[in-house]
Design a protein around this nucleic acid. Sequence first.
DNA 1: CTGAAAGCGCTTACAG
DNA 2: CTGAAAGCGCTTACAG
Lengths: 326, 326
Amino acid sequence: LMSSVKEVAKRADVSVATVSRVLNNDKSVKAINRTKVLEAIQELNFKPNMLAKNLRKRASHTIVMVLPSWNNPMVAGTVKGAQRAIGSSGYSLIIGTSDWQSDIYENMLNTNRADGIIIFSSWANKAIVQKLNERYPVVLCNEYYEGIDLAYAAIDNKTASYEAVSELLKRGCKDIVYVRGAIDSSSVLNRLAGYKQALAEAGLAFRPDYIIKPANHQQITELLNKLVHQGMPVDGILAHSDLYATHILKEIKERALHLKHNVGIISFDGSYLTEITNPSLSAIVQPAEQIGFEAVNLMLQKLNNTKQSKKNELVILAHKLVIRET
Amino acid sequence: LMSSVKEVAKRADVSVATVSRVLNNDKSVKAINRTKVLEAIQELNFKPNMLAKNLRKRASHTIVMVLPSWNNPMVAGTVKGAQRAIGSSGYSLIIGTSDWQSDIYENMLNTNRADGIIIFSSWANKAIVQKLNERYPVVLCNEYYEGIDLAYAAIDNKTASYEAVSELLKRGCKDIVYVRGAIDSSSVLNRLAGYKQALAEAGLAFRPDYIIKPANHQQITELLNKLVHQGMPVDGILAHSDLYATHILKEIKERALHLKHNVGIISFDGSYLTEITNPSLSAIVQPAEQIGFEAVNLMLQKLNNTKQSKKNELVILAHKLVIRET
DNA sequence: CTGAAAGCGCTTACAG
DNA sequence: CTGAAAGCGCTTACAG
């Protein structure tokens, strides 16, 4: 049914080696032979079998990417950028989320189903990342691990957080809560550092109670209410994600969360969610698409750099504080 | 570095054929040999090279899935279900969106980078689907094509639409607009049919002007305003997607769209977006995860059914009308 | 500039 | 129940 290099070779009256060379743009092929081969390829509608090529080249030409979840527009943007970078590189992108068992991804690498792994999310702890990094190309998105030499793409979370909190302070907010992520990831720690820096510059004391660490959406309301009922007022919120912020907005509206309607809220991500809520959300906009794009490019560089500079590249992308109604 | 069947065979003191048989659960292997092989696999930490297996089996063990976009929670749900169905089947899922050139997907099939294709979205016109279906396993999500024998998973769009419009009529709405999708896909046509049926049963005339066909989000406002300004009132809207509905809500709030705040709105999909808007949106909830799950299962059946019943299966899943604030 | 040949790491008729 | 051997469809030193 499908024709092979053998048939192309016969038709073009050359050897399979020459056909392969044409397929791989080998400069050494004489022009006349190249033409004959290309014609034969056309006539036979030949499509190279990647299964064979992959085995021979010992590469799956596949990259696997781990995401924190599907239901997050920031993630969607990143994937979009990743797909764009994959483009016509000849590589395929396999995407999965971290609710899969972690060893699925390791297995993909072990069994040659993927050549490298891009990790978005704090799915993998430091030990896993370190272990992977010793054997396979690894690129991180949005996070990094102190002490591991890795390529990654992310924004400057500390500065972004500093700017957001400074904005709230400028408006007159005095009691600002940071609703942080559940894991001590680099983004959480850096945002925490930016938060502290902004308070310090304003001459305000840092109060650990104002760092809220919910295990899930539901807990946000619980923890914030607890704070308020203990006599600690809240007039500003830095939310770790748009999803957190939309949830807070909803709970305020439904009066489950006992905060004023006009509490200052700035969330991270700045996806389209911040525009469809009512009121619309102020946010630190992350260049999600760019992050995904750069992450894949870093990986493609790694995969194509045979014995070139091994130095890992860090790509820091620009964020933007966008003020909307909160 | 990596050990191969050859090394396992040597260590277990059997032939590579026997190793392969153990790997493939061939019952004919004597228990003692099976044990020896399994031990050797353990000791050598052997991982089979899928590149070789795929070539030999003439299968990539990969499925490609085409989505309409990334930024849509309904799509996210479908992908989540698809991933769950893939589970530990040994297959990988490659996902892409329809803004890629269509021939990328055909090329994946042609070059053995994928064994079958799942099409969500009306990315492919009938001719393309028909052509693909002649050569490769195809499964459709949410849509089907009249006259092509295909497996697909979807809800009963006509009944769902009928129920939504009936609900609006029951509330007293008389002038109901259907903001339809841009393509004459089966879902659009069926929803249109349900819309008409509901009107007919209520003794109301069908007015083609009340079917709005925006090319993009921005056009919704333009087209609806035009209708209203031409003296055709609007008191109910059936929206083709949650995204459309959230956009409508936003434009009403910003007074760009000249409709009353309390216009009845029911949207399709019923993703989490319908809960975070203010007011929250009434919607036909599609079982997105299930749809993705079933689609992948249909595909896996096709790929594993060597010479079994060729009859294509249709999976119709239950929808649900959920009334919220609109 | 080209071809014959070996080989990537598996699986599977075939013979015993 | 098992092994020797062929082969999946490519690529690539090697020799010329």
